[in-house]
Amino acid sequence: MTGRIIIDLFTTLDGVAQAPGGPEEDPSDGFPFGGWQAPLPSEAVGRSVTEGMETLDALLLGRRTYDIFAGYWPQHTTGPEGWIGQLFDRVPKYVASRDAGIDLGWQGSTRVGDDLASEIATLREKHRDVHVIGSVDLVQTLLAERLYDELQLWVYPIVLGQGKKVFPDGAAPANLKLVHSETGDGGTLLLRYAPLPGEVRTGTVGE
């Protein structure tokens, strides 16, 4: 079995993926729009997220996202969100951090990051679908090193003009293949991409 590394991101039309869930999620660099996703509910996005969780059997998270999840989901294993809390509490959680002394008090948590390429290969051998949720800084590393199998973007019809982007200036050039697209309510758009090998080519249109 060769598992997949699946990146899940909510993003704005101008590519900002910072702090969609709440004001305190990631206020770094003075980001003033934390929680921008909240006023834009979408049944299609919710349905798509639910479907993706059905095969999830491990999480790969950046340090900031891990701390947010660890402080929230273990206390939300009942009620409407209970099934997500139970799932996240149950599955192995891998935390990308260079800090060997990181406090990983949430059950099933393991630090990675000493040799990410090798560790990702091991995760593919152990798990079917490893989901990277949020964790923009980690995602940028995975994208640059092509250490992923699917990039799943839920794009919202909003422009913020600032914040951490999926592909910031200086991102590594890369070829991608669109494997699925879907329009949703409220103007949302689901785009799923897979990486393609080779260097980005250029030319002149019409020649």
Rank of each mutant, 00 (worst) to 15 (best):
M1I: 11
T2V: 14
R4W: 05
F10I: 14
F10K: 13
T11V: 15
T12L: 01
L13E: 10
G15H: 08
V16E: 03
Q18V: 08
P20A: 08
P23F: 06
E25Q: 11
E25P: 06
P27Y: 02
F31K: 06
P32G: 07
Q37M: 15
A38Q: 14
A38H: 10
L40R: 14
S42C: 08
R47Q: 13
S48K: 10
S48P: 01
S48C: 10
V49I: 15
G52P: 02
M53D: 13
E54L: 13
T55C: 06
L56H: 09
D57R: 03
A58F: 04
L59R: 01
R64Y: 06
T65K: 03
Y66N: 09
D67N: 13
I68N: 10
I68W: 07
F69T: 06
F69A: 11
A70D: 07
Y72G: 08
Y72E: 05
W73C: 08
P74V: 04
Q75N: 15
Q75S: 15
T78A: 14
Q86M: 10
F88T: 05
V91H: 06
P92S: 07
Y94S: 07
V95E: 07
V95F: 09
S97Q: 05
R98T: 12
D99Q: 12
A100T: 14
G101S: 12
G101P: 03
D103E: 15
L104D: 04
W106S: 08
G108P: 09
R111C: 03
V112L: 14
L116A: 06
E119D: 09
I120V: 14
K126E: 14
R128C: 07
H131R: 15
V132T: 01
S135F: 03
S135M: 02
V136F: 00
V136S: 10
D137Q: 15
Q140P: 11
Q140W: 01
L142N: 00
L143N: 05
A144T: 01
L147F: 05
E150F: 01
L151E: 01
L153Q: 03
W154F: 13
V155A: 09
P157V: 05
I158L: 15
I158T: 12
V159I: 13
L160E: 08
K164N: 05
V166N: 03
F167D: 00
F167S: 00
P168D: 05
G170M: 01
G170V: 04
A172T: 14
A172P: 00
P173H: 02
A174D: 00
N175A: 00
L176M: 12
L176A: 10
K177I: 09
L178V: 15
H180T: 11
E182G: 11
T183Y: 12
T183M: 11
T183P: 11
G184H: 05
G186S: 09
G186R: 10
T188S: 10
T188L: 08
L189D: 10
L190E: 10
L190S: 10
L191H: 10
L191D: 04
Y193P: 02
Y193Q: 04
Y193I: 02
Y193R: 01
A194S: 13
L196Y: 02
L196I: 05
L196G: 03
V200W: 00
V205C: 08
V205K: 13
V205A: 14
G206Q: 02
E207A: 12
